[in-house]
Design a protein around this nucleic acid. Sequence first.
DNA 1: TCTAAACTTGACCATTTTAGTCAGGTATGT
DNA 2: ACATACCTGACTAAAATGGTCAAGTTTAGA
Lengths: 141, 141
Amino acid sequence: MKLTSKGRYAVMALVDLARFDNINPVSLRDISLRQGISLDYLEQIFYKLKKNEIVKSIRGTQGGYVLNKNPNDIKLTNIFHAVDEKVKTVQCKKESKKGCNGKATKCITHNLWDELEIHINTFFENKSLKDLLNNNKETRV
Amino acid sequence: MKLTSKGRYAVMALVDLARFDNINPVSLRDISLRQGISLDYLEQIFYKLKKNEIVKSIRGTQGGYVLNKNPNDIKLTNIFHAVDEKVKTVQCKKESKKGCNGKATKCITHNLWDELEIHINTFFENKSLKDLLNNNKETRV
DNA sequence: TCTAAACTTGACCATTTTAGTCAGGTATGT
DNA sequence: ACATACCTGACTAAAATGGTCAAGTTTAGA
């Protein structure tokens, strides 16, 4: 169980973006340099963030990205969903007729994984970009 | 973010084991058949569970495995730890002097991942094999 | 107008991890 | 003695990860 770097980078980049977008659009190049994330990889990630209406792009020189919503309304769950970070812990489907392991019944730990997923998702749903911004200010030197 | 099958199988196998070990040791062969998990793979998993003193083995004909503790004292966290299921969400180390991304400071989302880990671990620490047994009884037909 | 900055998009790929299999043991109850 | 069952290491195919590369399009500003 681990988070993939795509989801992690997405959050890092958005926090970075949120700290600067009041004044000007922020270029991926800047984010890349500040956060140490490959520019090409960032482009892939922002392509998805844009499709999911989390950011807007502004083209041309001095262009870049800006948030498309209030930081308070961007929950972590939105971000992860946008970059295809799956929180599914187990592949047994809820509605599958055949049950989990090819048998007729649900596997004996099925309920557990459902519960775990809910637990994790709740955490992500309650956490917004705004929370991270505040948190970061507190711990900055 | 997903759970690996090793951790999942370990929990499934132990729940299965717990339901039968009152009478006799349970052979991996039986668990393999009931849960649809490859015998060879189960052996790998139980090797680790044994090293971590979660189960005991009884050799010879009619041998098998039994729990080494009360189901109430076997927490999910113990099981996952035994089979090397990592809950670490991110590789930035707490004590690393260099910071996370090779820079001098902690990455701006560092605290978030710490918090998430704690959240998940708490869930696993509070969940014992006994809980799963009860839960399973309720939902069985 | 021209050009460079910046976004857009798809294709590709090396490495690592996962989810096992295979093989050849060793121990022990009957 | 022998079948059953545990014990252990080595190996591997397939998938996921974490990117890179290439070839654009769009637009602001000189």
